[in-house]
């Protein structure tokens, strides 16, 4: 991969990676650091990375960095990240905020695959590469995640 291709990748994917990381860790400055780390890794391995696969490479890097962050933070707190309790419907002004909040309550892998699917429109196969899962497993996680989100939205009677 050339320097120009690398810079093109920055232009094309930095925003998406930042949004993905920010949704995962709920911390913009941390997300920024994670994206920077991912691009640093890409630059270090630019000779070995095919430009056609650079998007998957970057999202894989960010995903692993986010998981590492989660594992470290769990170790530091000494407890599993407790799922947030469902808030009252009137606390949120619109569906997007509710959905974002409910997304954080999903299991880690369901959240990751749904984010990759909805934010970046990755195929099951691409998500499988990024998350080290089979296509069937990706599908299962996505379907279960959608079902879980639907149940929570149903409870809130927001969508009618």
């Amino acid at each position: 991969m050339t320097t120009k291709q690398y810079n093109d990748a920055v232009d094309a994917f930095a925003d998406g990676l930042f949004r993905f990381a920010a949704k995962q860790c709920n911390d913009r400055s941390l997300a920024k650091d994670i994206v920077q780390d991912a691009f640093t890794r890409l630059w270090m391995n630019k000779e070995n990375v095919d430009f056609t696969k650079v998007k998957s490479y970057l999202f894989t890097s960010v995903n692993r960095l986010v998981i590492d962050y989660w594992r470290k933070s769990k170790r530091m707190t000494g407890m599993e990240a407790a799922p947030q309790t469902a808030g009252k419907p009137d606390e949120y002004s619109n569906l997007k905020e509710i959905l974002d909040r409910e997304l954080q309550n999903l299991p880690e892998m369901q959240r990751i695959v749904i984010l990759l699917r909805d934010y970046e429109s990755f195929s099951y196969a691409e998500i499988g590469v990024i998350t080290d899962l089979s296509e069937a497993q990706v599908k299962v996680y996505i379907y279960r995640g959608r079902k879980a989100l639907k149940k929570r939205l149903e409870k809130m009677n927001i969508v009618a």
Partner: peptide, 28 residues
Amino acid sequence: DQKIYQATVLKPKLSEKYPAKNELKRKE
């Protein structure tokens, strides 16, 4: 149910961008 499922699809906030993209770029 179909409407609720359609509501579960996340839409990225495109206005949210990486703040220091130029810092990531490298000079050739």
